[in-house]
Design a protein around this nucleic acid. Structure first.
Lengths: 200, 200
DNA sequence: TCTAATACTGTATATAATTACAGTTATGAA
DNA sequence: TTCATAACTGTAATTATATACAGTATTAGA
């Protein structure tokens, strides 16, 4: 998010949660009640700040006229880039697509656009979007997004130990990748929790 | 929907669209303005009727406190059943999942849970949910949901003419299905516009 | 045929909600 | 130090909104 203060982030998250849980945005009073403000103007000030910072849109003279701005809504879609740096860096984000809570069993932190055919035997095809959860512990048997020396790849995790990690492509014409995490720089970016394909 | 009158359906759809487009529900005045009512009470009456019929929930004393009820939100997921009757009949609906406008390029009328392996070569696997659009014209080359004499199947449409329709499984161990629409009862239930897979 | 439900108009009012203005205190940057 | 920003309190006013009550005309079902 766009350098919100801690407090602003709290307010923002409350607004977001209220929209998600209630189906409509909160009023200034409801925000104030939640945070113990004695004046609705405290909430008003925060909303204005959040609007200034571009994460909220506020319709004037409209009760509950708060919406999340385009930037703050949506889940980023990143390409399978080989470059270094954080996978969610701005320059990697191709677009964002609306959040869809409740469709997949696990939370989705970002979507990764698949390149290549190394996973076709489990039905992951080029240009599919795979939904990635960054917080789940990586587990043998799961499909993971791994970064090996700044190269990002999607494979099934087949073995994980102190000095050997085995990543298995799901395509019999490719061979397994063996990594020694002590020698090579290996980072797990997340676990694949879903797949989205758009036929068009 | 639950036997709404034509007018009630119009109001309902307006409320639904407003929530989708604005991010928050309309007021009675806004509804009245839209439909040309000279009294906000006309809207109030309709909302009460929609609440009585179970398609809306209304929070008392709350501005814009309108939410779509669980039944009226969400897209149905149906199993690939062989039984006759409409595919979206209540007994076929396994569950509903939240609507996710904007993720797929085309509208989704329902999701179909895939059985079998006849489409694995295009990455459609057993238990995948394929997103179906019922309104798009069926086109050669697209993946379609077809009902042949009360049996529902998912295949690529390879040829369509007055007396021959060819459906092609995307798995080399299966053979093409040739249907004479004049002899066999063939109905296209829709076109596959997306795919959703939950790894869990 | 009677009755309930539908689909409104018209009026009115309490209250829900936005939002401006005037302050206070604390903090970090110029 | 000075100034802008953040994070509030407190008050108040306008307006946005929900919602009741009293009607009327039409339609659909029992």
């Amino acid at each position: 998010m766009n350098n919100l203060t801690k407090r602003q982030a709290e307010i923002f998250n409350f607004v977001k949660d209220e929209i998600e849980n209630n189906g409509y945005p909160p009023t200034r009073s409801e925000i104030s009640k939640m945070f113990g403000f004695k004046s609705p103007n405290a909430a008003e000030d925060h909303l204005k700040a959040l609007q200034r910072k571009g994460v909220l849109d506020i319709a004037a003279g409209t009760s509950r006229g708060i919406t999340l701005s385009a930037e703050s809504t949506g889940i980023p879609v990143v390409g399978l880039v080989s470059a270094g740096g954080p996978i969610l860096a701005e320059q990697n984000i191709e677009k964002t697509i609306p959040n869809n809570p409740g469709i997949l069993a696990h939370g989705v932190d970002f979507y990764l656009k698949v390149k290549g055919d190394s996973m076709i035997e489990v039905g992951i095809f080029e240009n599919d979007l795979i939904a990635i959860n960054q917080k789940m512990p990586v587990k043998v048997g799961n499909i993971v997004v791994a970064r090996i020396n700044d190269e990002v790849t999607v494979k099934t995790l087949n073995k994980i130990s102190d000095n050997l990690v085995v990543l298995k492509p799901e395509n019999s014409s490719y061979s397994e990748i063996e990594i020694n995490p002590k020698k090579d720089n290996l980072v797990f970016e997340g676990t694949c929790v879903g797949l989205l394909r758009d036929f068009s």
